[in-house]
Every structure is written in C-alpha cells, then in structure tokens.
C-alpha cells in the first residue's frame, strides 16, 4: 500500500510486551497480517514506493518502539544483552559496547546517516531479513543469540539458524524479537568492520564484512564472520571459518582463504554493483581481515 493510504492501516501501541504477544497470537490465529513497527526506516520507505491499492491490503501496525522490555543494553559478566528496539545511535554511544564490542559502533556509524541511526533498530534490521543488513552482519560475526517471545513462551536460537531464505526466517507470525545476547569478545580480541558501499554515507552495502577473532599462542581460538550483500541471506562464511578456526594463523594461506570465500558467497548483479565485483571484493575483505589479524 502506498503512502497516501497510510491512514487505512490500523495503529496500536500496546503498553506491554505481553499485550503485543496476545495481539499477535489472536491475529495469527485468524490468519491476519501484523506489522511490528520499531524504527520504521524500512517500512515507511516501502510504503513510499509502493503503488496504490484498493485498500484491501490494510495491515495492523503494532508500534513496539517504546516498549521498555525491548530497549536498552546491559552487560552481565561477559554476556551483553541488546534489546531489539535499540537504535544504532544508542549502540554508538554506549560505553560498554564501545569498550568491549567496538565492531557494533563502527558498523552503526556506517548505517544511513545520523537521522536513520537515531530511528533504525537492530531488531528491525533482523526482522526484515535483508541480506544487505549491516547490523545483521555484525550480529553474525558475534555469533549472537536471537531471543523470540510469543504466548507460547520464549525461545532462543543461534543467529546462524535464523534465516530460511531471502527475506525469510524461522520467526513465526505470532513471535516478536525481544533482543540479542552476545558473548563479548575477550581483552585483546580483534574486531573488524569494513563496509564497501555506494558512497561514504546514505549508502547500502555492496559488500561489507564484520569479523571477530581471538588468537591464543598463534592459533585462532574464536572466529566469527558475517558478510553482507553477497548471498540470499547474511553470509556466515562457514568454509572460511572451518579453514581458519583452531589453525595456526601463519599457516592460513591467502589462496586457501580465497577459495573458501568463493565457496561461501553467491553474489548477484543489481543496481548497486555486479556479481563479479562483489566476488572480488569478498575475497579482498577476507584477506584484509586475516592480513590485519596477522600483523597485530
């Protein structure tokens, strides 16, 4: 539905997470579609470009952006909790995140521009399940756990199990993403973020790579990688991970990394870039990640 039809959508702002779940459950049972609105930075753009309809596709919009249960960042031991409605700007400004997971503020700084960063949320980024989602690339590198809730109860799944296809996920129609937990990388860990976008701001990634590594006695002991815009879903680069994890760093050859990367990506031509270029850059970013890691 188009922007002039905005008023046809129902809008509710439930005052608790429990009511959100109940509302979702009722509607899901009747087969009715519901939109959970957090920052709205995708949803409104989609409305803006959508053609006018006869009005029959009106959806119910549940505004979850102000629910206290979905907001906030907290650390408990080495575990970091990030509420689903946490904005990029909050990630940029949080002292614990800045100190322990600098990957997140680095990624957040490259999303849109500051206006988008102030509205867009990490939960929303995952919910749309776009392979171009920068935030999801970072969560993939951190091997985050996704927390979902419905009237049926909570469940937690590894982010690598979340996607089922292009813009598709395991999240059921009655479920809401409540937040993420991340095992914060240790002291001296290496964290990497590089976005190759169409320009320096207000850009969607052509390719981006998020990476986390810990090295002990020359061996890679923790490795997380998330690559953006190179496959139907966020790419976890399993072949590269398998190649390098628990291996001596100086025994990981660039040629092997290249081959592994190429096995893990399947980029396409689109209005932003070409599949060939993306393949090339995918390899270059993985090489740069390991080159930088080795030189530390």
């Amino acid at each position: 539905m188009s922007l002039p039809e905005l008023s046809l959508h129902g809008l509710e702002r439930p005052d608790s997470l429990g009511s959100v779940c109940e509302r979702l459950a009722e509607r899901a049972a009747r087969g009715e579609k519901t939109v959970l609105l957090a920052g709205g930075t995708d949803w409104f753009v989609e409305r803006h470009v959508a053609p006018a309809t006869d009005g029959s596709e009106a959806e119910l919009v549940l505004d979850v952006s102000r629910l206290p249960e979905l907001r906030g960042i907290s650390a408990s031991g080495d575990t970091l909790w990030i509420g689903a409605a946490t904005t990029y700007l909050e990630l940029r400004r949080h002292p614990v995140v800045a100190a322990r997971v600098p990957l997140l503020p680095a990624m957040s700084k490259d999303v849109g521009a500051v206006q988008i960063q102030a509205r867009g949320t990490l939960g929303g980024n995952l919910a749309t399940a776009s392979p171009a989602a920068d935030g999801v690339g970072a969560l993939a590198a951190l091997d985050a756990t996704v927390h979902l809730l419905s009237v049926r109860g909570p469940r937690s799944i590894a982010i690598s199990d979340y996607f089922t296809g292009y813009k598709r996920s395991v999240r059921a129609a009655d479920e809401v993403i409540t937040g993420f937990t991340v095992q914060m990388p240790g002291e001296g860990s290496f964290q990497y973020w590089r976005k190759v976008g169409t320009r320096l701001a207000q850009a969607i990634s052509k390719v981006a790579l998020a990476g986390v590594a810990e090295v002990s006695d020359g061996q890679v002991t923790r490795l997380g990688l998330g690559m953006v815009s190179v496959a139907p879903t966020t790419a976890f680069l399993p072949t590269v991970r398998a190649l390098a994890l628990r291996r001596p760093l100086d025994r990981i050859a660039d040629s092997a990394l290249d081959a592994a990367t190429q096995a893990d990506v399947s980029p396409i031509d689109d209005v932003r870039s070409t599949g060939d270029y993306r393949r090339h850059v995918s390899g270059a970013l993985v090489r740069e990640f390991f080159r930088t890691l080795r030189s530390r």
Binding site: V45, A113, T198, R199, L200, A201, Q202, A203, I204, V271, R272
Partner: peptide
C-alpha cells in the same frame, strides 16, 4: 537511494 550522488 540508488541514483548515487556524492554526500558531504
């Protein structure tokens, strides 16, 4: 968003 001109 996709006809790319330079930003500041």
């Amino acid at each position: 968003t996709n006809y790319i001109v330079p930003t500041s």
